[in-house]
Amino acid sequence: MHNPIDALLAEKGVLLADGATGTNLFAMGLESGEAPELWNETAPEKIEALHQGFIDAGADIILTNSFGGTRHRLKLHNAQDRVFELNRKAAEIACRVAAKAGSRVIVAGSVGPTGELLQPLGALTYEAAVEAFLEQIEGLKAGGAEVAWIETMSAPDEIRAAAEAAIRAGLPYTYTGSFDTAGRTMMGLAPKDIHAVADDLPEKPVAVGANCGVGAPDILAALLDMVEARPQATVVVKGNCGVPEFRGAEVHYSGTPELMADYVRLAVDGGARIIGGCCGTTFEHLAAMRRALDEHKKTQPPTIAEIEARVGPMRNKGAAQSGAASAPAGRRERRRGRG
């Protein structure tokens, strides 16, 4: 399989992925409960504006508007019979915008969880999950997506099912977990163990890592564990823009452009090769991240104390992993207990 990520990494060293899809589409008028994927047909100009905003801010990788693009998610909107076409259109829109960029921009096909539990915890079989992801990824590939970007995952079996679907479709793939439950995913996967999920598959991921979660400090702690576990791996972090705060009926994220810029510096120092933003990350945030990435020179990995001093306290201090394992000898420390 052609690996566009490695090719661009060889040129640039560290890549900047885009920011939040939902946050920015809500700002454009998406209603709560409405499927963003339907806008690929009904409001393609807004999806184009989303991608253009991130490219203008400096993104090297943009994700298609297809996070909930499996039949299991689209059935909630009576669109389960339109999986292929909605995903194809998502990729076509992103490719159309990327083609006009003044520099190389990779189009990655966003693949989120099905929302179903796999057996034995739920009714979804592994093979049915593979088929659902394959249907989606084939649509993304037909529209021009270069990579299957499997994200916000919790269950190892679901990651494997999506990865197997990408392999069957003939696309290189990445995957990221959301370590939002005491430093692990909701289904108990630890950051240090994420690499092994696809070890016995015939094609290995081009990158693995973490996205979403509970804020910059925690995803940076997960980064240290992932990098220590496999120092040669290409590791992704795509963290939320601060933490969510309710203001009336609306959710706002606490992160400033300055905070997200410092998150980028810490992520580079911690060994990340692909860095982006998740929930709450706007074009303004991403532009600040681009400037920080361009100006920063990598130094030694930070300790947890340094991370907390610069980007705020961790939310999951009771996690089992050290969170600072990749710090040099003499600088290591354990996460403090829950306070």
Rank of each mutant, 00 (worst) to 15 (best):
L9H: 06
R332M: 09
A128S: 15
T42S: 14
E284P: 05
G102K: 07
A309D: 08
L16A: 09
L220I: 06
F26V: 12
C212D: 10
G112C: 10
V107N: 01
V208F: 08
G29M: 09
M187Y: 13
C95M: 08
L63E: 14
H51C: 15
T299M: 09
L220C: 06
I106F: 07
L117Y: 14
A162V: 12
P328N: 01
A101G: 09
K297G: 15
M314L: 12
R331P: 10
E41H: 14
G330F: 03
D157P: 06
R230H: 05
F283N: 08
I159L: 06
A128V: 12
I167N: 04
P328R: 02
R82I: 08
T42W: 02
C241Y: 02
R168E: 01
P120K: 07
W39R: 05
A10I: 10
G183W: 04
E306M: 01
L171M: 01
E151Y: 00
P244H: 06
Q136E: 15
A57N: 11
S326F: 06
V107C: 02
K89F: 07
V251G: 01
A148T: 02
A57Y: 08
R168D: 00
L74N: 10
V130N: 11
V130G: 12
A267T: 07
A91E: 08
S110V: 05
S254V: 00
D157N: 13
Q119G: 11
H77L: 14
I304H: 04
A142R: 04
S66Y: 06
V237N: 02
P301E: 02
L140V: 00
